[in-house]
Every structure is written in structure tokens, then in C-alpha cells.
Amino acid sequence: MEERNPLSLKEYKVIANDAIAPGVFVLRYRRDFTFIPGQVVAVALHPAHQPRMYSIASGMQDEEVWLLYNIRPEGELTPPLSELIAGHSIFASAPSGSFYGKAAPAVWIAAGTGIAPFVSMWRSGIRRDKLLIHGGRFLHSFYFEDTFKGALRENYIRCCSNESGDGVFHGRLTTWLQQQPNLPTDRKYYLCGSAEMVVETRDILIEKQISYDNIVAEIYF
């Protein structure tokens, strides 16, 4: 496996770029580096473009790199990225970052595509004593739910703000957290999502006596 500057971009051929929900895709390319779950890669469509960071969703042993992304209509990258097909090129950096939720027990909290690093951790074998709380707007927003549903059972909480469904909390994940009378204070909380979600969730956890020392956040930007 090759060692290189994490910020220089290298060309990769897309293996697949599949829609898994409306406006949400998993792009796959061959892995030629080692990484730690929770790490990110920078991605661009041209080596001279300003890249965007994406968490790796695949596991350490997977031969492919999976990137979970949603189309941001106003964005410069994701609309054309979603049109790529097998054989097209992307430019990606080596992995970097240190959002590694290996502690056990631990609570993983994700919003939308913020589930990606937790999918990577899970697929890499980091599975012991985890509570996963995933927030999404729609019932189709629980990406990779087949991965977690059977294995985590009652420790897999899905919170849907815009729709109701079987076994799904109807409301935002922050509402679910606020409704919990006793959140455990003796474990790590790993948060991944937008700035709004991370800041609001962190405030709730601190209000519920979770030490900020036990809160680790990854914000996608």
C-alpha cells in the first residue's frame, strides 16, 4: 500500500456510482492505501479544483473505497459527481483525520450522510457495546440500515423528522435525546453531521451532564 501526501490528489477510476436513495449516492473506487475508520479523503473532479472532504464509508478490509454523498444542488462538486459512471475519473487524496470511535461502550450519533464513518467503523469490526442514533428527514434517509438493524436491534435508534414508520422515532434525534431521562455519563459520544446538528446535540449532551471530554465530533464542511 502506498504512502503519500494526504493533500495531494491522485486519479482513480470510478467502479460504480449508485443511487441508494433520492439524491444520495455511494461512489466506489479501488483502494490502494491503508486507513483508519473515521478518516476522510478529499475529492475533486479535476486536480486543480478545490476538493471537498468525504468520510470513507467502507471498511479497512474492503478492497474498495466507498463514499456516501448527497447532491447539493447549489454545490459545484456533487451535481456533476452524481453523473459519473464506471470508468470515469475522480481525483482523491490519501486518507487523513482521526475521528475514530473505537471506545466501548460508546454512543454513535449521526445525521444524514454523517452515518458514513460509523459504517466504516462497523465494517472494520468495531462493534462492541455500541448505541447508534441516526437522524434523517425521511424513512429512506437511514442509509445502510440493513447493516445495523439486525445486529444492533434495540441499540439502533432511527429518528425521522418528516415521516413516521414502524420502529422509528417520529421526531428529530435531538428531541429523542432530550426525552431520555438518563443518558449514560460514563462513555464516549461520537457525533457526525452538520454544524447545526453537532452543536445542538453537544449542547443537549452537556446539559444532561455528559462531560465535554466525552464528546468527540466530526463536522462535515
Binding site: S194, A195, E196, V198, V199, R202, D203, Y212, A217, I219, F221
Partner: peptide, 17 residues
């Protein structure tokens, strides 16, 4: 307008981006 960085000590971060 706002900020994405979510620093624990910053008021701007509390309004999101």
C-alpha cells in the same frame, strides 16, 4: 453567515452555517 466549525467556546458556531 454563521460557521461550520462548531468550536465549543464560540457563539457564532451555535447558529450553524
Amino acid at each position: 453567515v454563521g460557521c461550520k466549525m462548531g468550536c465549543l467556546f464560540c457563539m457564532t458556531g451555535k447558529q450553524g452555517f
